[in-house]
Design a protein around this nucleic acid. Sequence first.
DNA 1: TATAATTACTTACATAAAGTAAGTTACTAA
DNA 2: TTAGTAACTTACTTTATGTAAGTAATTATA
Lengths: 102, 102
Amino acid sequence: MDKSICPRFEKAMGLLGQRWTGMIIYQLLDGPQRFCSIESSIGVSGRVLSERLKDLESEGIVKRNVYPETPVRIEYSLTEKGLGLEPLMRDIEKWSQAWLEA
Amino acid sequence: MDKSICPRFEKAMGLLGQRWTGMIIYQLLDGPQRFCSIESSIGVSGRVLSERLKDLESEGIVKRNVYPETPVRIEYSLTEKGLGLEPLMRDIEKWSQAWLEA
DNA sequence: TATAATTACTTACATAAAGTAAGTTACTAA
DNA sequence: TTAGTAACTTACTTTATGTAAGTAATTATA
């Protein structure tokens, strides 16, 4: 094993290369959203969504906001770090428009 | 399920969101490379690398070049479509430099 | 000359990740 | 009172990945 690749790049890829992570972030670019809304819009299972949101929160990419109304409302949003991924997401959009069939 | 997300974006994410795919493409940005070289540089198993290269080839992102020398030499390189992913890879680099610890 | 090594894989088997469906707790609307 | 929604969790099944060994062709080494 040579492993000359930058460990930060590797870590970023480890995050983004996980199933659903990119879709969740992309979805949150539209603004804060609730659990069930993310779930239904991208088609991820609750089991995995729950797992991913926890990971992303612990990485400081997503923030969990609790609004103590009745009933309580919980929204997930991107942090500054998470918003930093927008250019990247736009590149994926552009590439997919340019190179993939509809 | 609402699924208002662009199907092309979804497909792109389905590709890039697979384990190792991004690392393979990133590695190939440095130029054509042989199987065992990719294997050792990113630490992917031969089993999965073989699978991914076939997928990427069938998607037209990677090209398999056979040089009939003795012994035969096989190199993998990015197609134009694959090279189109460079800006995206550079954005991941930038983001990881800006937001992740070394 | 026999043995070991390399390249580009494939195969078989074990473990980890994801999907599915049901369950939970708190609350609301009919 | 019954049904429904939101935000999850749990148990179980299926799929994906990791690990290690095997293969075929060729080359280098003792």
